[in-house]
């Protein structure tokens, strides 16, 4: 599977995650979101940036609960709750947001 972004071919795995994490940029995130029929707004970007910080710090993709905790820690309880994150990312925030943020698929996400 692949994705064409600004004339560049981006390879995806069978679940739509980036094969090479270095391929990520904001245009790629937009294209990935298009495939999921999701329009990225400021609230989404805030979480995507947060996920990239999480990955830089811990070298892994968070499962749902750690994602909620980390969001609450960094952005406050109003955003660090399952309601907010589920609403933004179609009920599967850990999986979908990791995909759009260019992170590996969360290994604990069954």
């Amino acid at each position: 599977m692949s994705l064409l972004v600004d004339g560049r071919e981006i390879t995806l795995d069978k679940d739509g995650f980036l094969v090479d994490l270095a391929d990520w940029n904001e245009a790629v995130a937009e294209a990935l979101a298009d495939r999921e029929e999701l329009a990225l707004e400021a609230d989404h970007w805030e979480i995507l940036r947060l996920l990239r910080e999480f990955y830089a710090e811990f070298q892994l993709s968070p499962a749902t609960r750690p994602l909620i905790k980390y969001t609450a820690l960094k952005l406050g309880a109003e955003k660090g709750n399952s309601l907010h994150l589920n609403r933004l990312f179609k009920g599967t925030p850990a999986k979908l947001a990791a995909k759009l943020a260019g992170l590996p698929k969360p290994s604990n996400c069954l």
């Binding site: 710090e57 811990f58 070298q59 892994l60 968070p62 499962a63 609960r65 750690p66 905790k69 980390y70 820690l73």
Partner: peptide, 15 residues
Amino acid sequence: QKDLTANLQALPLFG
């Protein structure tokens, strides 16, 4: 290899 020590720091966030 991947950085195991960085992963360990996430343990409290994983509860």
